[in-house]
């Protein structure tokens, strides 16, 4: 388990998406994204030395959620007003039921507004561009960047591209009988 592994530090930045729940784990040389979708746990490792770019793009998810939830509250309020308009003494049970249902939408609306603007975070390597699942708020993205940028910069430094052949090879020093 990663919780007990001293090499990994859990970043409380993950979250739930449409496809499942994801958690982020920071290791010394990579970021591990664990995504649980249904009965499968998927792992993606982004090694700091491979990351070329990170893209944060704003999305309109917060706006659409707010509009949807706000529309539901407005509809319920309208129905409540229409049903109680003509009656001289509206049934308090009906009013409380409506208020209760409205709260069911109002609380998520408030949470959605308080959590801040939404975004998509992409990690670009030499071979792929991957979205980080579950990371869809600007605040969280900012925190992740604050952690990752120094780590990636330290891992890559200003050194040129790693050469294909390593400088030393253990087999070069081998002096035993010929193999092969």
């Amino acid at each position: 388990m990663l919780k007990k592994d001293p090499n990994y530090q859990r970043l409380k930045l993950g979250g739930a998406g449409l496809m499942g729940v994801s958690t982020l784990w920071l290791a010394q040389d990579h970021l591990l994204v664990v995504e649980v979708t249904g009965y499968v746990e998927k792992y993606r490792r982004f090694y700091f030395r491979d990351i070329q770019a990170m893209v944060i793009q704003s999305t309109s998810l917060r706006l659409w959620w707010s509009l949807g939830l706000g529309a539901m509250i407005a509809c319920l309020l309208l129905i409540l007003l229409v049903t109680t308009w003509n009656s001289p003494s509206p049934d308090p049970v009906v009013v409380w039921v409506f208020v209760g249902i409205m709260l069911l939408f109002a609380v998520p609306l408030l949470i959605n507004l308080l959590r801040g603007p939404t975004c998509t975070v992409l990690v670009r390597t030499a071979v792929q561009t991957q979205k980080i699942p579950g990371l869809n708020r600007r605040k969280k993205a900012g925190k992740l960047m604050a952690l990752l940028v120094p780590a990636i910069s330290a891992a890559q430094g200003a050194s040129p591209a790693p050469t294909a052949a390593p400088a030393e090879s253990p087999a070069e020093n081998y002096s035993g009988p010929a193999a092969g």
Binding site: V55, Q156, A161
Partner: peptide, 24 residues
């Protein structure tokens, strides 16, 4: 984004400029 005008931030790292190395 030049096409859809969505606010976008790109952070580049040194690996972005590294040329593709030929295989050994």
């Amino acid at each position: 984004c030049p096409a859809c005008w969505r606010p976008t931030e790109v952070t580049l790292f040194p690996a972005f400029d590294w040329p593709v190395t030929a295989g050994a």
